[in-house]
């Protein structure tokens, strides 16, 4: 039995030189691994950071984004609720976001300083106009979570 030619063809987008369109529509089945607890926490209005449990570790800082292994001693870390009020360290309004951005163009991106946290987590401002040192508090997308970092946002706390 002879095998038929394929019925799916590629669209020609350019005649000379010949150019064809390769469609890509499949999903990646990504796992957050040990960091999944952070994203589950957002659904419950919790901002979960991690701290090293090694008594000999020099720094024992609070990390957010969380790490399940300490970068200073490679020891496992424990989950701790991070403060939900902080200040804006820097900001920018992204006018031309890339494909896949789930929020409208013009959304202010912010980096937030939280007391006791050694990082400055990148996030977005859900309400208001950002400025340096502005006091903000965390809000969570609990109703219909995206299961991404976008489920955390901040609003003015002044």
């Amino acid at each position: 039995m002879a095998i038929e030619w394929p019925t799916t063809t590629l669209e020609v987008w350019n005649e000379e030189p010949l150019g064809v369109k390769n469609p890509k529509t499949w999903a990646h089945y990504h796992s957050y691994g040990g960091w999944g607890r952070f994203f589950r926490g957002l659904e419950q209005s919790r901002l979960l950071a991690t701290r090293c449990t090694n008594p000999r570790c020099a720094e024992k800082r609070l990390w957010l984004p969380p790490r399940t292994g300490c970068p200073d001693c490679w020891h496992p870390m424990e989950w701790v609720d991070a403060p939900q009020e902080g200040t804006i360290f820097t900001f920018s309004t992204v006018k031309y976001p890339g494909e896949l951005f789930k929020l409208p163009a013009g959304t202010p991106l912010i980096s937030v300083e939280l007391p006791g946290v050694c990082t400055k987590i990148m996030s977005w401002l859900k309400d208001g106009t950002p400025r340096f040192g502005m006091k903000v508090k965390a809000v969570f997308n609990t109703r219909k979570p995206t299961h991404t970092i976008l489920d955390l946002a901040w609003v003015p706390a002044e």
Binding site: H30, Y32, W35, P65, T90, F91, S92, V94, Y96, P97, G98, E99, L100, F101, K102, T107, L109, S111, I121, M122, S123, W124, T148, I149, L150
Partner: peptide, 27 residues
């Protein structure tokens, strides 16, 4: 293309925030 480039940010905690490297430099 910009979202591909933003895949070179942390996809778990950063890329979703704009999918745009220029924004990370703007910060």
């Amino acid at each position: 293309g910009n979202s591909y480039i933003a895949s070179a940010a942390c996809k778990d905690f950063e890329s979703e925030l704009g999918w745009m490297y220029a924004a990370y430099y703007a910060l």
